[in-house]
Structures are given as C-alpha cells and as structure tokens.
C-alpha cells in the first residue's frame, strides 16, 4: 500500500462570477478518511476535482506524498476516483471495467484477472464479474466503480458523492461498506457529500465547507457537539432557533443561563439549541403546549409551542411519550450544554 498524505494550500478557483474556491486549506494524514460536507455550490466537488487533476486551480498548491502535483496531468496522478453515477464503461463487463486501469499499467492478463477477482470479492461482487453495467443495480454499479478505483492501488481515493444517486437503504449499507473497505486497504480518502448524516457516519474527520472555504474541520463528534459557527450548527444536525440575550460569557434562553461557544458581544441573539438538549415535562402550570409528537423508535420528537409563538423541538426517550399527548401543558427545560448563537 502506497498511501500518501495530501495537503491543499490556498486553493482558489473562479468560474465566471462564481467563486467556487476561496483559499481552501486542507491537510490529510496518510490513511485518513476526510469527508468534505457542504451545501451544493460550496466548492467541495471543485476541490476534489482539482485534487484529481480534472479541474485547474487558479492559484494554490496541491501536495501529495510530499510532491507538488499541480503540473501533473490527471492521468499521471495515480488517484482512484468514484463518480456520482454512470461512470462505468457500458461496453465492458464489470471485471473488464475493473481491469481497465491494470491494462493501462501493462499488467499481464493473469495478474489482471486475479486482481480484478480480488477487488470484486472485496466489494462483495465476486460472482458478478461477467455482468455488463446495465445488468447491475445502481448500488452494484457503484461497488464496481469502487473496485475499479481500488484495483490500481491508488495513492489517494476520491469519492465524489458516490451514494447520492442511490436509495436510502442502499446508501446506508454501502457507506458502511465503503468505510470497512477503506479501513482494510488503508488508502487516504477524500469523500465529498452534501449529506451530513453520511459524513458523520463515515469519516475520521469532517470538513464543513461554505462559500469556497472550510468553516470547520474536526472529528464527527466535535462537529456535532461543538459547532464552531452558526452555519455549522444549522447545517449539521437539527437545531432550535430560540431568541436569547448574551450577557458576558453566558446566554440567557427561556429563563436558562447557558455557556457560550466562542466570544460574542452582549445583546439580543438567536441561540441554536439541539433537540436533545431540550427536556420537556408535563406540568399543568407550564406555559408550553405539546402540538405534535413523532415516534422515531427508541427516541421521539416532541414539538412544543410557547406563548410567544416560538416553536421548540425536544428529543426524548420514546418511553416518555404516554405522558405527553398533544395538548398537554408542559414546562421546557434546557440542559446546560454550550450553545452557538448567531446575531
């Protein structure tokens, strides 16, 4: 395995009037899986394509395995790439698709076949080598595409929203498998997605992008528990937007005083509070009123309306649902965890 570290420095890219990348910096350790997460148009795919050599950067450095590869054309970069969909060559069987890159590396037929069988086994399609792409389901096609990218033992694996065209169930199953395989082969991997759940589930580190730069990068837990900015807090996971007031280093929301993430000037703000940081108890003197409940298996979400028409969503154990039918007067309590506020 020739896994390499990756370093992107100050990447800029402009498409007409659209600034796709605005000084992106990213470091990836050898063997690490980094997910770039962001809304469409945030530049995440551009970053991946620049790393692949399929797009030029206007300025900035691209270093892989210690070498600047800005001037290396895509076909000499030694990167395995999996596209969103439809990237398999339709006139070749699954096995021939996998062998394609090996043929380019002038390996002999026996080695090629052997290797193709191995990687197809790895992605769980050992028996489907002689099928044509149009005979495979969308999920199987993406597995073959993954096998094709892995067959050449690339320095870096690039996954460009590989699951976005698949059904929800296949998506979950395949993302777990991608992670298992990535850990097994140990290839440095950049995974681009707009699905926050996917990014959190699969990555060693998640980089949240916005308008061509990294808003925050950290472990999935960091990103979720301590979002550095309001944008991250709102983009990753659900958040209640509640009016509050900052005084010093605490913010007062719904009569609770909560610690702050980062320093903010005093004054009125909107606090972003996770549903699981909200608790609700039935209380005849409470000012809130349950308006809807939704059952999610082990947990449940309870929507509460407050006197000033504000809406709060709380996440609770579903065992507590019987005491909270819609219409119940309730009291809302916020747990004292640090919250992000936006002005």
């Amino acid at each position: 395995m020739t896994s390499a570290g990756v370093r992107l420095e100050g990447l800029r890219r402009q498409f007409g009037s659209l600034r796709a990348l605005d000084g992106l910096d990213l470091d990836m350790a050898p063997g690490e899986l980094v997910a770039l997460l962001g809304p469409s148009g945030c530049g995440k795919t551009t970053a991946l394509r620049i790393l692949a050599g399929l797009e030029d950067a206007d300025s900035g450095r691209i270093v892989v395995g210690g070498k600047d590869i800005a001037n290396v054309p895509a076909n000499r970069r030694d990167m395995g790439m999996v596209f969103q969909a439809y990237s398999l060559f339709p006139h070749l069987t699954a096995a021939e698709n996998v062998e394609f890159g090996l043929r380019l590396r002038r390996q002999n037929a026996a080695t090629r076949r052997q290797r193709a069988r191995e990687v197809l086994e790895l992605v769980g399609l050992g028996a489907h080598g002689d099928r044509y792409p149009q005979q495979l389901s969308g999920g199987q096609q993406q597995r073959v595409a993954l096998a094709r990218a892995l067959a050449i033992q690339p320095q870096v694996l690039l996954l460009d929203e590989p699951l976005s065209a698949l059904d929800a169930k296949v998506r979950v199953q395949l993302r777990e498998e991608i992670r298992r395989i990535q850990l097994e082969v140990g290839t440095t991997t950049l995974f681009v997605t707009h699905d926050q759940e996917e990014a959190l589930a699969i990555a060693d580190r998640v980089g949240v992008m916005r308008a061509g730069r990294l808003e925050q990068i950290g472990s999935p837990e960091d990103i979720y528990r301590s979002p550095a900015t309001p944008f991250v807090a709102e983009f990753v996971g659900l958040s209640n937007r509640l009016p509050g007031r900052v005084t010093g280093d605490v913010v007062e929301v719904l009569d609770a005083k909560l610690p702050l993430v980062g320093a903010v000037h005093s004054g009125p703000v909107t606090a972003l509070v996770r549903p699981e940081s909200v608790d609700v108890t039935a209380d005849p003197t409470g000012t809130g009123r349950v308006v809807a409940v939704s059952f999610l298996g082990p947990t449940a979400r309870v929507t509460v309306s407050l006197p000033d028409d504000a809406i709060v969503v709380a996440q609770l154990e579903s065992a507590r649902l019987p005491e909270l039918p819609p219409g119940t007067p309730v009291r809302v309590i916020l747990r004292p965890v640090p919250v992000v506020v936006s002005p």
């Binding site: 399929l54 797009e55 030029d56 950067a57 206007d58 300025s59 800005a70 001037n71 895509a74």
Partner: peptide, 8 residues
C-alpha cells in the same frame, strides 16, 4: 499556475 485543463 499551469492550467492544464484550460489549455486543453
């Protein structure tokens, strides 16, 4: 910057 893509 080289601009391999743009050249092509």
């Amino acid at each position: 910057m080289a601009g391999l893509r743009q050249r092509r």
